[in-house]
Amino acid sequence: MTEKRKGARSIKDIPPDILEQLNRGEIETANLTEWLAVDQRRLLENLLLQNNRAHYLKPILENVDRLKKQTVNTVNETIGMGLLHLAVQNTDDEFLQKLPTHPADLVRCWAAYTIGRNPDLPLKEKLKRIQLFAADSHFGVREICWMTVRPDISRNLDESLSVLSEWTRHNNENVRRFASESTRPRGVWCEHIDALKQNPGLGLKILEPLRSDSSRYVQDSVGNWLNDASKSQPEFVVEICDEWLRESPTKETQYIIKKALRTLRK
C-alpha cells in the first residue's frame, strides 16, 4: 500500500510512477524529499482540469512567475492565495469546499491558505476551520496551517491565546501542538511576535496545561517555545523552569526544561 511508503532519500531515487501519482494529486507525499519534489505547477494544473476550473490556471501561474524567490513555501502560499482570490471573485465556494479533504497533502496546504488568509473570516471562525488542518495526519499540512494564521494570531494576540488555550485540552496531540507552535515568540520561517518576546508570561495560559504533556511532539514544541523566550527574557524562562521542576518533576517536564534551557546552557 502506498500509504505505508517510507519515501526515497533523494529526489533522483523517487520512482517515476510515484512522482507521477504525486503530481496528479492521487497520493500524498511520504517524506520531506517527496514534498520538495512535487511539481506544484503540474499538480495545480491537474487539480483544475479535474474540477473543470482550467481558466484559473493562467492568472495563478502568472503570480508564481512574478515571485522574486520561488521556494516550496512561497509557491505554496501564492497558489493558495490565488485559489482564494479567484474563488471569491467567481463566488465559487463549491470548489473551495473540496480542497480540505483532497488526497494530496500539498492541495490541503493550499486549502489552509484559503482559510487562514481570507480577510472576510473573523479570527474565531478562522481558527475553528483551521483546526481540521492542525489535526491533519500529514506533517506538511500541520506546518503550513499555523503559518497561514500566524499574522492574525500576532495582530489579535489576546483573543488568539484565549481560543488556543482551550486547544491545549484537546485529545488530539497535533491540535495541542498547534496551540504552542503557532504562538512561539520567534517561530520558524515567520515573523516574530514582539509582544511575546518582551512579555512571554502572556503565553503561560498555553504552556502551563502542556508542561507535562504525554506527547513528545508537544513537548518539543513547548521546549522550543521557552527556548525562543530565553533569548529575550532569560530570567523569566529560568524562573518558570524552576517552578515547573518543583511542582511537576515528571520525566515529560524534565525533557521540556532541558530543551527550554539549551541556549542558556551553551
Rank of each mutant, 00 (worst) to 15 (best):
E26L: 15
H138R: 13
K266R: 15
D39E: 10
S137G: 13
L121D: 07
G25S: 12
K58P: 00
F139R: 14
N224E: 01
P15Y: 03
S162M: 13
A229R: 00
G201Y: 01
W110I: 11
V237K: 07
D158A: 15
G7E: 10
D213Y: 01
K12P: 00
T78Q: 13
P15H: 02
S160E: 07
R211F: 12
M81E: 15
T183V: 01
Q21M: 13
R216W: 04
I240Y: 12
T101R: 14
L44W: 04
Q233D: 04
H85R: 14
V75H: 00
W35K: 03
K266P: 05
S137W: 02
R177L: 06
I256K: 04
E94F: 07
R24S: 12
H170Y: 09
Q89G: 00
D93A: 04
K69R: 12
I14K: 04
E252H: 14
R211M: 13
S232Q: 11
R216N: 11
L261Q: 08
A87D: 05
G80P: 05
E239R: 14
H192F: 02
T33M: 08
L61T: 12
K258T: 04
S165P: 02
I256L: 08
T101F: 06
R129A: 09
P16Q: 09
R186S: 01
T2Y: 13
Q89R: 10
I206Q: 01
P59E: 09
P100Y: 08
N199G: 00
L106Q: 14
R142Y: 03
S212M: 05
N171K: 13
C145R: 04
R169S: 12
P122Q: 07
A37N: 03
S165W: 01
R211D: 03
I130G: 04
A37I: 02
L121G: 09
I115V: 15
L22E: 07
E243N: 12
K98D: 03
V222T: 06
K266C: 04
T148C: 11
E20F: 09
G116Y: 07
V163I: 15
L127Q: 06
P100F: 07
L61Q: 12
R265V: 02
A179D: 05
E235I: 07
W167H: 08
F139E: 13
N51H: 15
L261E: 04
R129E: 13
H102S: 13
C190R: 07
H138A: 11
V107I: 15
A54I: 10
D39H: 10
K126S: 06
G140L: 02
T29L: 03
V72L: 13
N23T: 05
I153C: 09
S230R: 05
F95V: 05
R9H: 12
V222I: 13
Q97T: 10
G187L: 02
Y113I: 06
E239V: 00
V175K: 11
A229Q: 01
Y255R: 12
R66A: 15
N52M: 01
E94P: 00
T250L: 08
S232K: 07
N52V: 00
E45Q: 14
R108M: 07
L157M: 11
A260H: 02
A54M: 06
P234R: 08
C145A: 14
F178R: 06
H102M: 06
L123I: 02
L164S: 05
R211H: 14
E173R: 12
K251R: 14
L84H: 03
A260G: 06
R108T: 05
L32I: 11
N90M: 00
S154W: 00
L22W: 06
K266Y: 11
K12A: 14
L32P: 00
R177V: 06
P200A: 07
T91N: 15
